[in-house]
Design a protein around this nucleic acid. Structure first.
Lengths: 228, 228
DNA sequence: ACCTGAACACCGTTCAAGT
DNA sequence: ACCTGAACACCGTTCAAGT
């Protein structure tokens, strides 16, 4: 008498009143990623949370890469929607960049997934935002593209490093602060002749502010524009 | 009479005359990665290539992340060793950055693995090189760190995008050129009101030069230094 | 059209047992 | 000390079968 109908009933008793859909799957994926990180997103865990079969997801989602990209897109879209314009184009760029930084820091899985979504919607959204602000700076089209893509690459680079840092910290069961101390400690024991710069960097690594350093990088690129 | 002894004999008939060692494992890992990409590096394939048991590798290598990081390190070390100094600090930075770009473009697996090696040796090597050149620019220590890490993040961002692009292209069995055309075609069909910048970018995306754009980004950061 | 869930073809990692 | 290879505990993805 139909496991099918029972499952269907079960699912509709859950929080989402409707049946399976692309949106409900993505929503569940984001919840899974947010609660326990990238490794928590498996088709088995996802189908259990949605009270469905693991194969059912493939009717709505092409594959895991598509799922991760869609999860990023949902978060990026929400993040962008919440950002206001700044008084000047440059301020808008700074505000936007910081919003992206905060979103990525709040969700380490996105720092890892975003760089892998090259050319896809979440990246398109970010590029469009950057481009819109860059456009107001009065540069040639060629220059607009160069600046916007340089910033995109910089943001994605920081995103990746952030994610990698958090990943190691989590696997060692320590927090960000202890992790930075551990890295600094390793760096300070490097050969003094071969690694003078990194050894000095180790000294102020523990107390540096990721967010401020990130913004300083954005400002560096913006200042390069004036000098051009 | 010992499978053990037989295996040992078999291994020593191979190209590497010595037994298993960290170096020989890393060398084999790089060869595997170079020939068939990231998915080709499995402990099973690696142990077969080395004529050993898959568990044996764990005597010399902590885990897969360690292996990937060590493979990156081997390539980065070789790449850096082959770079000469430029006539000025800025030229040195440009030369170094391009060498890294070329190394990453030649090995897409490294573009994906490098950003995941946060704080580890391959990153330390890159940071030290950048720092050494930045130091010659006569900035404060704080400024030196900001510039070097901004460049590192930018390079890693480009590396990640490059890897992601190549990964998609390979999975679709097309080359870089056709892939860029496919992305451009998708972008040009985006909503005109919501994505004006990306739509215009789509027009010159196919004929743009990744390497030149990358260098333009480095120059942008370098110019920001003058303006500061 | 949409869903089920067993089955397939893999993974990284461990570990008792060997030499 | 170093190596073997079966076993463990997972994966993503497919697909015949259901409704």
């Amino acid at each position: 008498m139909a496991k099918y109908a029972m499952k269907r009933k079960e699912r509709n008793n859950g929080s989402s009143s409707e049946g399976l859909s692309r949106e409900s799957i993505i929503e569940a994926a984001v919840a899974l990623l947010d609660s326990n990180g990238e490794s928590a997103l498996t088709f088995r865990a996802l189908s259990e949370r949605l009270s469905t079969g693991s194969g059912a997801i493939y009717w709505h989602i092409a594959n895991k890469s598509d799922l991760l990209s869609a999860a990023c897109d949902a978060v990026v879209a929400r993040t962008i929607a919440a950002i206001g314009h700044g008084p000047t184009p440059k301020e808008s760029i700074r505000t936007f960049s910081l919003a992206m930084f905060d979103a990525i820091e709040a969700r380490p899985w996105m720092g890892a997934a975003l760089p892998r979504a090259a050319g896809e919607m979440p990246i398109v959204r970010i590029l469009e935002c950057l481009g819109g602000h860059v456009r107001a700076l009065g540069l040639s089209e060629q220059q607009q593209w160069l600046v916007a893509s340089a910033m995109l690459n910089y943001i994605l680079g920081v995103a990746g490093q952030n994610a990698a840092n958090m990943h190691v910290a989590m696997s060692k069961q320590i927090d960000r602060h202890d992790f930075l101390h551990a890295v600094a400690s390793t760096w300070s024991r490097l050969d003094a002749d071969a690694y003078p710069f990194v050894r000095r960097a180790a000294e102020f690594l523990p107390q540096h502010n990721d967010r401020e350093d990130f913004l300083a990088g954005i400002d560096l690129i913006l200042r390069g524009l004036d000098a051009g």
